[in-house]
Simulated assay, not measured.
Amino acid sequence: MKIPVIKKLVESCTIEELQAAEQAILEEQPLPIEIEGSDEGEQLTHAIAAIWILERMQEANLDFKTALREYTQKVRESIN
Rank of each mutant, 00 (worst) to 15 (best):
Q73L: 14
F64N: 03
C13R: 15
L54M: 12
E22A: 07
I53H: 06
Q58M: 04
T14R: 12
C13V: 05
E17V: 09
I79Q: 14
H46E: 01
I6R: 02
A20S: 07
E27L: 11
L44R: 07
L62E: 06
E70Q: 14
W52T: 12
A24K: 12
D39Q: 01
D39T: 06
L68Y: 03
E28F: 08
L62K: 05
I3L: 14
E11P: 01
R69C: 06
E22F: 06
Q58D: 10
N61A: 13
Q23S: 15
T66E: 11
Y71L: 04
T66V: 13
A60G: 08
C13A: 14
P4V: 04
I79P: 00
V5S: 14
T66D: 08
P32K: 06
M1I: 03
T14V: 10
L26D: 11
N80S: 13
A50R: 04
D39W: 08
M57T: 11
I15V: 14
R56D: 09
E42Q: 15
T45F: 10
A21N: 02
Q19A: 07
M57E: 03
L44C: 05
L26W: 09
A20D: 08
P4K: 04
A24C: 03
Q29H: 09
I35R: 02
V10N: 02
N61M: 07
S78C: 06
L9P: 00
E42G: 05
N61Q: 14
K65M: 11
L31T: 02
E55Y: 00
E40W: 12
A60E: 14
T66F: 06
A47Q: 01
A67C: 10
I33A: 04
D63R: 05
I48W: 02
Q29P: 00
L62F: 11
K74D: 10
